[in-house]
Design a protein around this nucleic acid. Structure first.
Length: 689
DNA sequence: ACCTTGTGAATTTTT
DNA sequence: TTCACAAGGT
């Protein structure tokens, strides 16, 4: 067995790194702790928090001070809380929660900033209306006609949105007579839609601006709506990014706020700093500068790895340009992977971190690069199931680029495709599909995905003997007053639900819903469905209503066909989807997106790769082509190069023992780069080997 | 030959 | 929403 022996020297050296952090904490010298993949970064963070608690608890309690720990995701918040154990001395949360807690009571100041923001937005839109070519026809109107056009469109607002996604010819028909004075406006329906939308937005913002100025009662409070991903400025509601923006402005503007934060929270830690928004780092650097200025002690610790910044908006390596003077501490040990993997991933970073294994027995892994075609993928995977003797326990993890592919390979292709046919998740709402159908946080599922999830969960739980009875109940008290006999009866009734497809299951539920005449049965079903008197007709209508916009005659046909497709999908497929979401798949091969594997580790990894990613036809090939001479790239190309490198780094560093890359495009021009990183290039076709 | 318009397909992820 | 490309117009 490998990866188990650590020499005393290495233990000591690892402790030295920790001691370096502790020393900085004692000296109030803010740090940036960099460590590569699998280094035990979170461990270092937890140890640092514990160190502060151990050594400063009395002092902190005396002054009613707390330690702040910021994580990037709610999942990470939970993990740190669990690993640190129960303490009220440390406030662990996401940055958004913390900033909102710190600023929400300064409503007067927030509204003032909001007013400025609304005004800026108005100016921006007005400028666009004058310059952008989409508004050309509007620009050609005289002032009088501009007003007139706007007035008409404000009047027909409802009609406008009712027909928003109808085809151009249809749309023109609807507005033809209404706009007979402005035939030119309708020539390009897309431009028309954009123009009218902009006019509506401007109208709403102007109204909001006026009401704030007039001290209107409903405009005295700004709200952070974390469940929405967009600002609704005119409703005084802001979303994630704007919250950070306002936070930054408040901190920038008010010295008193800076002092309050510094004095109340003398230790701040940020986990996964590379994903933090630049605005956060600015806030922290302002705080640090101010603490120096007023001579109050303050410590800031950034923990992360700039090479693992794979999201737009993350600060990555730029952090040290913005927060100046950080004491940089690097950790060189890798606690995850075999030497063979580490040697490869070391080539995929451009900073001075070069990892070595902490284990003496670190050999025994393997990395190989293959080329093949799409048709080879299945064979390739099967081959390694055999070669690595993969079982449902050991599992092989296969990384692909898109969620669509994950859905295909994981066996719920129909489900995914049918959702793209709906209004709610197709067309311009296409980008919400992954969020609301594939979120592995079930509380983030969309309304209909959540309903399907609940139904599937009930069935999975009912027929899985390991599930405690309580898990099929909406709340703990439901079973409290029941006798064992009644409970058994209820379970037997529930287990009557039968059906190969969703449709058949719903019909079966309908039958028993009225037949069993059991109040508890109804309570459970009503809770799962979210409405009462469940029938399959009601269910179908509910799906149509929630998944489609305006159900006019020919739209209804389409809606019915799509919903029918959903109903005819095998329950087995819903189960595969359910297990994907709950991360409880019992297959030999588990599929992920590259991005989705961040923070995780697997013994055996296969990465399927090709030139293109998204709209970018030259993505991974661009990286390999330039690998030998990346310094010669221009600024923009260098940035692109770095982004691809980080994604490659994250993907390859998931592997503990065995890593295979299967490349699906021609590599003639990239061969040198690839060989430099992965060594020999192999062919999937055995004859040619 | 060039410009305008319409259509359909498309990255990942978090708050 | 944004982009590429096909279709259609001048």
């Amino acid at each position: 067995m490998s990866l188990s022996v650590i020499s005393p020297t290495n233990i000591e050296r690892e402790n030295e790194t920790l001691n370096e952090i502790f020393k900085s904490i004692d000296e109030n010298k803010s740090i940036i702790f960099n460590s590569g993949a699998g280094a035990g970064k979170t461990y270092a963070l937890i140890q640092s928090l514990k160190y502060v608690i151990r050594n400063y608890e009395k002092k902190l309690k005396k002054h009613n001070q707390k330690i702040v720990c910021i994580t990037y995701t709610n999942v990470a918040t939970k993990e740190v809380k669990e690993r640190l154990g129960n303490t009220d001395l440390v406030l662990i949360s996401t940055i958004h929660e913390r900033i909102w807690e710190l600023t929400k009571d300064y409503q007067k100041e927030l509204v003032e900033i909001h007013k400025e923001k609304v005004y800026e937005e108005i100016l921006k839109l007005e400028q666009k209306l004058i310059v952008d070519k989409e508004y050309k026809k509007y620009q050609e109107l005289n002032d009088n006609n501009k007003e007139k056009f706007k007035k008409i469109m404000l009047e027909y607002r409802e009609l406008f949105f009712q027909n928003y996604s109808t085809k151009a010819a249809e749309f023109k028909k609807v507005f033809h007579t209404i706009l007979d004075e402005f035939p030119e406006m309708l020539t390009n329906v897309n431009y028309f839609r954009k123009t009218v939308n902009t006019l509506y937005t401007l109208e709403k913002l102007s109204e909001c601006y006026e009401k704030i100025k007039l001290n209107n009662k409903q405009y005295k409070k700004v709200e952070y709506t974390s469940n929405y991903n967009h600002d609704r400025l005119h409703k005084m509601q802001i979303s994630h990014d704007t919250l950070l923006e306002y936070g930054l402005k408040l901190v920038e503007k008010y010295d008193l706020l800076k002092q309050i934060i510094i004095d109340q929270y003398p230790f701040v830690f940020i986990d996964e700093y590379q994903d933090s928004d630049e605005k956060i780092v600015l806030i922290m650097s302002y705080l640090e500068n101010y603490s120096t200025k007023i001579g109050h002690k303050w410590f800031m610790g950034y923990f992360g790895d700039s090479a693992q910044n794979i999201y737009d908006g993350g600060i990555g390596g730029k952090i040290t340009d913005i927060h100046i003077g950080l004491n940089s501490i690097n950790k060189e040990f890798n606690r995850r992977s075999t030497k063979e993997i580490i040697d490869v991933i070391n080539k995929l970073r451009s900073d001075d971190i070069e990892q070595i294994s902490i284990f003496d027995d670190c050999n025994g892994g393997s990395v190989k690069f293959y080329i093949g075609t799409k048709e080879d993928v299945q064979n390739f995977i099967d081959r390694y199931i055999n070669e690595w003797e993969i079982t449902e326990k050991t599992q092989l993890h296969c990384l692909v680029l898109t969620n669509k592919l994950v859905a295909d390979y994981s066996g719920f292709k129909n489900l995914y495709e049918t959702f793209t046919e709906t209004d709610r998740y197709g067309g311009m709402n296409y980008n919400q599909l992954n969020n609301e159908l594939l979120s592995n946080d079930s509380s983030k599922l969309g309304e209909i995905p959540k309903l399907l999830f609940n139904i599937t969960r009930l069935l999975v739980n009912l027929f899985d003997n390991k599930t405690p009875v309580i898990d099929i109940s909406p709340n703990e008290s439901l079973f409290e007053d029941m006798s064992i006999e009644d409970l058994r009866e209820l379970i037997i009734q529930l287990k009557q639900i039968k059906g190969k497809t969703l449709d058949e299951c719903i019909k079966s539920i309908e039958t028993y819903y009225s037949k069993v005449n059991n109040e508890k049965y109804r309570i459970i079903m009503d809770w799962i469905f979210g409405f009462e008197n469940i029938t399959s007709d009601l269910f179908e209508n509910y799906l149509i209503e929630k998944l489609f916009n305006n159900i006019s005659d020919n739209n209804l046909e389409r809606a019915k066909a799509t919903v029918n497709r959903l109903l005819k999908i095998d329950m087995y497929e819903y189960q595969l989807w359910y297990k994907f979401i709950t991360d409880s798949q019992e297959e030999k091969v588990i599929y992920h997106t590259y991005h989705g594997t961040k923070g995780r580790e697997f013994d055996n990894v296969i990465i399927i790769m090709e030139n293109a990613f998204g709209r970018n036809k030259d993505y991974f090939n661009f990286y390999f082509e330039n690998f030998m001479d990346s310094n010669a790239l221009g600024d923009e190309d260098k940035q692109k190069y770095g982004k691809i490198q980080n994604l490659l780094y994250v993907s390859c560093s998931r592997a503990i023992k065995n890593l295979r890359v299967l490349y699906l495009d021609d590599i003639t021009d990239l061969e040198r780069g690839i060989k430099e990183i992965f060594g020999q290039v192999n062919l999937t076709n055995n004859k040619l080997q």
